[in-house]
Design a protein around this nucleic acid. Structure first.
Length: 281
DNA sequence: ATGTCGAAATCGTTTCGA
């Protein structure tokens, strides 16, 4: 089972690149962030033609998350309210479309676009901390079902010095401040979620995002802010995790690169596939 | 060194968010 996450910074602008990447990398599931498209305009037919089904939760201009899957997605849950119905805070924060979750082959995948926060003195930074706090309750609610769990996406947080090209200068600032790091670390510990990339690659200089500004890509001044977290039973089955930085060198690229995890997971055909048109009697 | 993108609206340049 190959699962990938990629902040594409507009799925419509990046459509050809995403389809080309799917063809080449053939993931079972691609989780998108910053789709920047309202649901009625999501380019679902383009994915369908290429053998993928989609689920999405978007809005125009900003935010938006989506699943692109070769397998049936079950129990799709939209927004923070997807696990926290009747929670006013989840409803308020959920006005920004940043969360989608589903079961794929009995694995619960939670696809997140964590608020950026802008700067430490911005109201958006307060929103980011409130949002992370709500995510903690969200994951607590999810845990009641005891599903194998994969939480991934654009976290807009670099947890450690080795996740930033210049930790001396950048530590303490936005995406590397103590309150946001503590908030993320807290919910990971609580759920025993592991940063699967670090199980395979302890070295620094592995980035998933390079700012469009300042020639960051050419100078390799990046951050690792796109993460894949796995629960224990999935960590044991994980075979590899890598960042596909090549596509950051595309013409008109996203500022993020895809991150992929390969998990040993039963791949035999199930009723999911048998319900396909070919097998309908 | 906030130097660049993408999208929307104020429509062809500006503003916002990242």
């Amino acid at each position: 089972m190959l699962i990938a996450t990629w902040n594409v910074n507009s799925v419509r602008t990046r459509l050809d690149q995403v389809l080309a990447w799917l063809k080449e990398s053939k993931p079972d599931l691609l989780c998108l962030q910053e789709t920047k498209v309202d649901d009625p305009f999501f380019p679902k037919e383009d994915f369908k033609k290429n053998g993928y089904q989609v689920s999405f939760h978007g809005q125009k201009a900003y935010n938006g998350v989506a699943f692109v899957s070769r397998h049936v997605l079950n129990d799709v849950r939209l927004g923070l309210s997807g696990e926290l119905p009747n929670d006013p805070e989840a409803e308020r924060l959920g006005e920004q479309k940043r969360v989608i979750s589903a079961l794929i082959k009995d694995i619960r995948v939670v696809n997140l676009y964590v608020p950026n926060g802008s700067s430490l003195k911005s109201p958006k930074y307060i929103y980011k901390l409130q949002w992370l706090n709500c995510l903690k309750r969200y994951l607590k609610a999810q845990a009641n079902r005891q599903e194998p769990l994969c939480v991934l996406g654009d976290f807009n947080i670099a947890l450690e010095p080795r996740d930033i090209h210049n930790p001396e200068k950048l530590t303490g600032g936005i995406m590397a401040s103590e309150p946001e790091r503590k908030a993320l670390q807290g919910l990971l510990e609580e759920k025993s979620l592991q940063d699967i990339f670090r199980i395979f690659e302890p070295e620094s200089n592995n980035w998933s995002w390079w700012d469009y500004r300042s020639g960051a890509w050419d100078r390799d001044k990046g951050w690792r802010i796109d993460h894949i977290y796995l629960s224990e039973e999935l960590v044991r089955q994980a075979k590899s995790c890598r960042i596909d930085k090549r596509v950051r060198g595309n013409i008109q690229p996203s500022d993020h690169a895809p991150v992929l995890v390969e998990i040993n997971w039963p791949e035999e055909e199930t009723e999911d596939e048998l319900s396909d048109d070919l097998f309908r009697y």
